[in-house]
């Protein structure tokens, strides 16, 4: 029998109106304990009001090798950004 607990990734919402952000990881035997350990470890100083824990093995990540084909194509479409457009001075609320 293993005594090595699986790894969990912890996401913390620091206050209402903000999304959960990755805080780090920890070990726990199951989800319930992972939540509690996360509370103890990552919100000791009142850093959070909500926590998600996810087994690390359940995260599928994009591959760094495919970084270019994956993300480069979106870099050449400046018309998606508001700064692409010239607006005459004095025009407001745009």
């Amino acid at each position: 029998m293993t005594q090595n607990w699986p790894l969990w990734e912890v996401f913390v919402r620091s206050r209402r109106g903000l999304s959960h952000t990755h805080a780090g990881s920890l070990h726990a035997p199951d989800a319930e304990m992972a939540l509690r350990n996360a509370r103890d470890l990552y919100t000791r100083r009142g850093e959070g009001i909500s926590i998600w824990v996810v087994p690390s093995t359940e995260i599928t990540a994009s591959s760094p090798d495919e970084r270019d084909p994956f993300f480069a194509p979106s870099a050449d479409k400046p018309y998606r950004h508001p700064t692409f457009y010239d607006i005459p001075e004095g025009v407001s609320h745009l």
Binding site: W5, L26, R36, D40, L41, R44
Partner: peptide, 11 residues
Amino acid sequence: PVLEEEVALAN
């Protein structure tokens, strides 16, 4: 018994 529990007991 485990580091996570150090933090919990201290809390």
